[in-house]
Every structure is written in C-alpha cells, then in structure tokens.
Amino acid sequence: MQNAVAVYGLGNMGFLIAERIAKAFPVKVADLDQGLIARAADQFSAVAIGGPETLSETSVIVLSLPSPSISQAVVKQIAPHLSAGTVVVETSTVNPEDMHALQRLLKPHGIEVIDASVLAGVGQMAAGTASLAIGGSAQAVEAAKPVLDAIADKQIYFGETGAGAAAKVINNAVAHAVMVVIAEAGSMATAAGVDTQKLIAMLSDAQMGIQRPLTHRYAERIVDGNYSGGMPLDAARKDSVLALQLAQNLGVPLFAIQGSHSVYEMAANAGYGREDYAAIAKLWADWGRPAVPGSKG
C-alpha cells in the first residue's frame, strides 16, 4: 500500500489540492475547521491527522496554509516526528525568504522543502488545468514528483528553493499591475467613445497591446541586448505624452500609466532616446539590477 500524503490546510485551494492527490494516494488532512475535515473524509476518504506522531510513515507533506508564519508553526511542530528524506511541499504564495525559513527549520532533521506555487485559481485547479511554479533541489523535486503530478500536469522548474515562489510572486505582480493599466485604458476608451469589444480585440492581438512588450521587446531585444532599430524610445515617450494629454482632456485619473511615463523621461535623459524603446530596461542595469543576467546596459 502506498504511503499516505499529508495535506495541511483545507481552504478553497487546499481542499482541491487534497482532492486531486487523493486520486493517486491515500490522504491525511489537517485543518482547524472540523467541518472541512469531515467533508474531505466524505468526498475522497481522507483521514484526519491525529497528531504529528502519526506522520512517521508519510514521505510527502503538502502545505496550503493562510500565511508563511502558520506554515512555519506547523513545520516546527511536525519536523521532529518526520523521517529523514521526507519532502515538504509549500504550495501557497510566499516569498523566497519564507521558503528559506522553512529550509532552516527542516534541515537539522534531514528533511527537504520545495516550493510548488500554484499558478492558477480554484477553477483551474478543479478542472485539472493548473500549473505549478517549482523551486528546490533536483533530488527533492524528483522524490515528490508523483505527488506533484497528481496536483498538476504542467510544472515549470525555475531553480533552487525559493525560485518557484519568486516566479509566482512576479507573475502575480505583473497581472495585478496590468489590471490597473487595463482599468485605466478602459476608462479612457469609454470616455473617448471607443468600442469596448474592439479595444479588447486590439489589445489581445499578438502584434499589439499587451503581448508584444513581452514576446518581442523582452524576449528578443532585452534578453539579447539588441536595441538597434525598432521604435525609438523618443517616439514612445511622445506617445506616452499623448496618452497623458488624452486622459487629462477626458478627465480620467491615471496611476500606472502616469507612473510609467516617468521611466521614459528618465531613459531619454540617460541618452537612450534613439534606441528601441525596450532600452528602458538599461536603466535597471545602470542601477545594478539588470533585467537579464550579464546585462550591462
């Protein structure tokens, strides 16, 4: 019989993670809400974790808890009872420093931790289309692979412990920042009488709006350090001024678009005006924080 997988945390995401794991492994669960434990027992035959001493035969522990401090509290409680070689899998959205804190707690017991941050919402997890952003030693990831496969087929390995967590935080930061830009753009479009559905189609086009800065300017220009040709930064700065003027004339408040304009002003002042406007990335290299490894601006 397979060893059971322990899942701590049966919130909206944790419950679905436990349910998916239960299709491949026996599952033990823990949550402060006894109703959720009873529901898990009813829906996929989960067994309540009676105490940390019952985990000695469990080789993979999955955490889906509300905060890093709670994850650390749980790990402190259970670590002395786990067998060496056990792998703890943190699926919540946390920062690399939180993963390193778990690593420090577990290392004295011969236990490894990996980050397997969920790149999806509950709908995708329920549908089986979620992805995992993974970080950790190759050995630990391989040991936990059957459980990771049970959670999600699509997995992206980013590097050592904390790298997957960082990728998830960055992904969310981009999505949330773009959401502000889209809200601003939508307000400007509505005030200007632009058809909403046509605006969405235009911004979704692979050669325009949202995708082009990533798939062309970051993936091809910034990664390769190629800023020759293309749309000059001075021209992009001019267009940015037009957007600010349009918003002002329409009475639409701007935050993200207004803030991004300052970057174009700084890049122009730094002498990058004749280069492709992806050259804004050279500012971060100038500040000692390049956008890609080895970049010197």
Rank of each mutant, 00 (worst) to 15 (best):
Q139T: 13
H109M: 03
K154A: 10
Q139C: 01
P108S: 04
A120N: 08
A120M: 11
K145N: 13
G121P: 05
A116I: 08
K145F: 03
G123E: 05
L119E: 12
E112T: 10
A140E: 02
Q139M: 07
V113F: 06
V113H: 04
E160T: 09
T129E: 14
A143D: 03
A152S: 14
G110L: 03
G164L: 03
E142C: 04
T129V: 01
V113S: 06
I134Q: 11
A133G: 10
A143N: 11
A144T: 08
A143L: 10
A116Q: 09
A126R: 12
A163T: 11
E142L: 06
T129A: 06
K107G: 00
D153V: 10
V141Q: 10
A163P: 02
V141C: 07
A143Q: 14
V147D: 08
G136M: 02
G128H: 02
V147S: 05
K145Q: 15
G136H: 04
A126T: 08
A130E: 10
H109Q: 12
D115C: 09
I134R: 09
G164I: 01
P146D: 14
A143S: 13
G110S: 08
T161S: 05
P108R: 02
V118A: 07
A130G: 07
I114L: 10
Q124I: 00
I114S: 08
V113R: 03
T161N: 02
S131I: 05
Q124D: 09
S131V: 03
